[in-house]
Design a protein around this nucleic acid. Structure first.
Lengths: 339, 339
DNA sequence: AATGTTTGTGCAAACGATTTCACAAATTGC
DNA sequence: GCAATTTGTGAAATCGTTTGCACAAACATT
């Protein structure tokens, strides 16, 4: 391994000078810089990151914490996409990203502790938000820089987070259905513990009320995931005396499940019922009918969260921010117009 | 920050002793260990990882390199899943994982260089395999520990990798179609540059030949991705004078695209044509008809690659390994039996 | 010409761990 | 009961950087 001393020796200067060249210190004369840089190149010098971290007390690394794999959500294309968003800024800023690998809630907690106590990272991004989450509490208590993607369960004004306006998104997409003449509109969502679900559903209800439509409990379904449980739910929905003509589904991935079940039951989309959902993952484009969905700009969620976090790590006094990523509806083929 | 010295002082021993307690050195008396451990707990001591890395010249971290985002494959649920597999062993071994964040091929290359030269990681896992890949060549040249998930393009016997037997998988799944009475079977695959595609296709052909069936070029389609391009391909396939009754698709995600197009063209699966594919991602279970597909055990690919890599990093002389993860067909509802 | 300032560089002390060597005390073997 | 070994601990060097301080040389100011 070639160290700073080697290039110092090779150039005939002191290690400090080499270090300053690396930092591009203005006090070093141009000619020395040239010399040193050449030597670095020739010898194939690369700074040792641990040594540097040790003294500067910063790692230029951020931790990204995934939800525990209890959240089956992990197969959701949401994650690779947001990782890419995060990656695009970390790369540009020459930061690196360390991924959590714990599977259970406790494992993840341990891991975060290691990350912060051991100075593995300068800050963390939480890719989930849970009520009474030990990780969140821990980070707050330690005053460790972090940002949440999504809406924090408590202390919303005290935690920097980046989120969509899921209420409006829900309202708008439901509004779209209403505009197209639908009056009986159902909602199918995931776990009620998730703020995304809650907000989108609230938006859905708001749109209904605003349009003077009745919101009925029998039109609202919450199902963890789309296997057996989901099937019954959808069937029940269809067998109501007045079945819905439109359905708002809280997530594209769920949508494909719902879609499949509908078609299986002989219900054609969008002919018999219209379907809209959220996220606009690649899948929603390749499935038939292509889904009308609200694009929440997952990539941008990643970008902004990484930016906000890095700002926080370089400037500890950075004020709390609430960043809202705009959404837009992308119209495709899953909704029909009613007379 | 509480350091080793603080706990030394608190316990009345020397830093070296504390260090040995951490390492659970047998030479330290049980009573001292007790004392020291208590002090560590009381003071909230956590070792500083940079300091340790600096002296032991190892980071207990591995780098995971994703394909460049030119590979749109990134939306594939394959990635989160394999990350979870990797994570499960890194977590257990108390390793951490650093994710590549480069988007283009060059960015990724730079990043890998930083990782190895700067001693960011002890080894890397390549989640792709490309012909003449600068990254691969670099790692080989530097003799830096790495493993490939998939089949290396060259030097197959010289590079530790973990892969499925894609040839057999292709052969078996095609065989299944044949058993069920199909004789006209098509193949739809992704880029021909990928070994997965090549191998699975070769297996497909082998099965055909073995059964005395003709393999025809007009039955083989390669399409980058499933939007416009894919649609035409599928239509062309259907409009042949003798259209296939069965299709082998190289990937579940593609399958949902194909499936959608088929149904859109009024072709019912499995009534009119049967469909099989590979990977067994969550999606293949929720879509209707549920897909008969070969489960390649993505999670296990991750587990084994991480294990193999860690072995290599702790023992540089570990021999090259070729690890093959078994597959199995999971039978669902996308194939019908022909008379 | 004397003084003050700027410019360019080196010395040496950190940073927080690990590890080699040394050594006293305790234990064992005979 | 004495030599040899084992057991338990500490001192100090080391890992590869960064950085505060010092200081000589060059330059600017009167």
């Amino acid at each position: 391994m070639v160290t700073i001393k080697d290039v110092a020796k090779a150039t005939g200067v002191s290690p400090s000078t080499v270090s300053r060249v690396i930092a591009d210190n203005p006090r070093i004369s141009p000619v020395t810089k040239k010399k040193v840089r050449k030597a670095m190149k020739d010898l194939g010098y690369h700074p040792n990151i641990s040594a540097r971290n040790l003294v500067v007390k910063s790692t230029k690394a951020i931790g990204v914490i995934m939800p525990s794999s209890a959240d089956k959500a992990l197969q959701n294309p949401f994650f690779p996409e947001i990782l890419r968003g995060i990656g695009s800024v970390t790369h540009q800023m020459k930061y690196s990203v360390t991924l959590s690998s714990g599977q259970t809630e406790e494992e993840i907690f341990e891991e975060v502790q290691r990350m912060v106590f051991g100075s593995y990272v300068d800050g963390v991004i939480l890719l989930y938000s849970r009520l009474n989450d030990p990780v969140t509490n821990f980070l707050i208590e330690k005053e460790f820089p972090f940002v949440i993607v999504g809406k924090p369960y408590e202390n919303v004004n005290g935690i920097t987070h980046v989120d969509n306006d899921n209420f409006s998104a829900g309202k708008e997409i439901t509004g779209h259905l209403i505009e197209r003449g639908h009056e009986r509109i159902a909602f199918i969502g995931g776990s009620k513990d998730l703020f995304v679900t809650i907000d989108r559903e609230a938006g859905y209800e708001a749109a209904l009320q605003e349009a003077g439509l009745e919101v009925s409990d029998s039109y609202k379904i919450h199902t963890e995931f789309l296997k057996s449980g989901g099937r019954e739910a959808v069937e029940k929905l269809l067998s109501l005396k007045v079945p819905p003509t439109g359905i708002v589904v809280s997530d594209d991935l769920m949508s494909v499940g719902v879609l499949s079940m509908l078609e299986e039951s002989g219900v054609k989309v969008p002919r018999d019922v219209s379907l809209v959902s959220f996220n606009n993952v690649y899948l929603s484009e390749i499935i038939r009918p292509a889904l009308t969905t609200v694009d929440i700009q997952i990539h941008e969620l990643g970008v902004q969260s990484a930016k906000a976090l890095i700002e926080k790590t370089v400037n500890k006094t950075e004020p709390v921010k609430r960043i809202s990523i705009p959404h837009r509806i992308v119209y495709r083929d899953s909704v029909s117009k009613l007379p």
